[in-house]
Simulated scan of single mutants.
Amino acid sequence: MTRSTPVSGLSELKAALQLAIGVELSTIPVYLTALYSIREGRNTGAAQTIRSVVMEEMLHMTLAANVLNALGETPSPEPVAFQGHRNLSPLPDYPLDSPLISGIGTLRLLPLSPQAVDGFVRIEHPLHGAADVREIEPGSCGYRTIGEFYDAIATALKDPAICPDTVFRHRNQVPDTQYYGGAGHVVEVRDRSSALKAIRTIVDEGEGLPPEHLEDEAKKVTTEDRLRSGWQMYSHYARFRELRTGRRFRTGQLAGQEPEGALLPVDYGAVHPALYVPRNGDSGGGPETAALIEFDLVYSRLVDGLYLAFSGDRTALPTAVHGMHALKHRAVALMRTPLPGDPAHTLCPRFSYLPPGDREKLARQAGELRRQSR
Rank of each mutant, 00 (worst) to 15 (best):
I162T: 13
A154R: 09
G139Q: 07
G139C: 10
G139S: 10
E137L: 14
P138Q: 04
Y143R: 05
P138D: 04
E148A: 04
A152W: 03
Y143C: 06
K158P: 03
K158M: 10
K158G: 15
C141W: 06
Y143D: 04
P160G: 02
R134C: 00
R134T: 14
Y150P: 10
G142V: 04
P138S: 00
T155Y: 00
A156C: 13
Y143I: 02
R134H: 14
G139M: 09
I162G: 08
A161N: 13
Y150V: 02
E148P: 14
I136Y: 13
E135Q: 15
K158T: 09
P160H: 03
L157C: 13
V133R: 11
K158H: 09
A154I: 02
A152P: 13
F149M: 05
C141G: 08
A152F: 11
A156L: 12
R144C: 07
P160M: 03
K158L: 13
I153G: 07
T155R: 12
P138G: 04
E135A: 12
G147F: 05
L157T: 00
P160A: 00
Y150T: 02
Y143Q: 03
R144H: 12
F149D: 07
E137S: 14
R144E: 05
D151H: 11
A152H: 05
I153P: 06
F149S: 03
I153M: 04
E135V: 01
Y150L: 09
I162M: 07
A152S: 15
D151F: 07
R134A: 10
R134M: 00
E137V: 15
T145R: 00
D159R: 01
E148I: 04
T155H: 03
I146H: 12
A154G: 12
I146D: 07
R144D: 06
G142A: 08
G139Y: 09
Y150D: 05
R144W: 12
A156M: 09
P138C: 04
S140Y: 00
L157W: 06
G142D: 12
I153V: 15
I162E: 02
A161W: 06
R144V: 05
I136H: 12
A161S: 15
Y143E: 02
L157D: 02
E137Y: 07
T145P: 14
A152K: 01
V133Y: 07
P138V: 04
A156Q: 07
C141P: 14
T145Y: 00
R144L: 05
A154F: 06
E148R: 00
C141K: 07
F149T: 01
I146F: 14
G142I: 05
Y143H: 08
A152C: 11
I162C: 11
I146K: 02
A154V: 07
G142P: 15
A154M: 13
A154S: 15
K158I: 01
I162Y: 04
D151E: 12
K158E: 15
E135K: 14
I146S: 13
E135F: 07
V133T: 12
S140G: 14
I162D: 03
I153L: 06
D159Q: 04
G147C: 08
G147K: 00
T155M: 10
R134D: 11
R134S: 14
R134L: 00
I146Y: 10
E137Q: 13
